[in-house]
Write a protein that binds this DNA or RNA. Structure first.
Lengths: 138, 138
DNA sequence: TTCGTGCTTGACGCTTACGTAAACGTAAAG
DNA sequence: CTTTACGTTTACGTAAGCGTCAAGCACGAA
């Protein structure tokens, strides 16, 4: 039995929630917003690998501070069909736009990290000064 | 007259808003939340260099997707007084925490940029394929 | 059959980060 | 003196992103 059904693995909503540490409410909310489209078996939701990937992308987008609307656009780019020329050019345009945003963010991060390093240095200096004075007065 | 009052430059709320491209409402809101504390001349707000810097930091924090509450903590670290040992250690702890967050974000950005590059390559391939077919059928 | 477990759909509530008037003050310019 | 520009407070509105019940179905175990 050479498991030919690997691609058929599915998850329940609770399993997915546990794995990514989000609530069921959140997952259903993302579905409401069109970000996830699980299969339905009767009334119950069944999640496929595709849904898992999308959820991971959504959460990464959130960590980056994108709104769900923006995330929707980004995630939808990933499984866009080839389509016509206009569509492709639009997509490339979107990509350029997102890239610019992300590069701005990266610069912001670099700057903030540098600032934090300076504050940290000040703190360390203050701390050692404080401690040496403590030793002197003991 | 060797302008010895450079450090005394001030701005009106409208000037600051124009410079950073935010609304007056936004600036006043940040004040409500304790992020800005302009001088008052009578009823009117007067902004000093310190306020400008803080506004810039706030906006950078926003671009990074931090909430105003988080931004408040970060920005307040910048002009924290030396204080006592406990305070300093708390500050260093905060810094470590923020740094970890920022580094996670940076990783997320790198990954997303790579993903986008792949999607872009796919698009470009589709596009050239499409165009070569167009030429062939002309 | 009854219980527990896991899932479902509403639907209302809450916080954040402002937008958007409304109504008023003040000071210089015409 | 009235207009215009620029400022003020108060306060309700709103979109996003869920939290939190409430009420109910389905299914296997006891």
């Amino acid at each position: 039995m050479h498991n030919s059904q690997v691609s058929a693995q599915t998850w329940s909503i609770a399993e997915l929630a546990a794995e990514y540490d989000v609530t069921l409410r959140t997952i259903r909310f993302y579905e409401d917003r069109g970000l996830l489209t699980p299969e339905r078996r009767g009334t119950v939701r069944v999640y496929h690998p595709r849904d898992r990937v999308r959820l991971a992308l959504i959460l990464r987008g959130k960590r980056l501070g994108f709104s769900l609307d923006e995330i929707a656009k980004i995630v939808d780019m990933y499984d866009a069909e080839p389509g016509e020329e206009g569509q492709l050019e639009y997509l490339l345009d979107q990509i350029a736009h997102r890239r610019a945003e992300l590069e701005q963010r990266r610069r912001d991060i670099e700057e903030t990290l540098q600032d934090l390093a300076e504050v940290e240095a000040r703190c360390q200096a203050d701390l050692t000064a404080l401690r040496s004075r403590q030793r002197a007065s003991s």
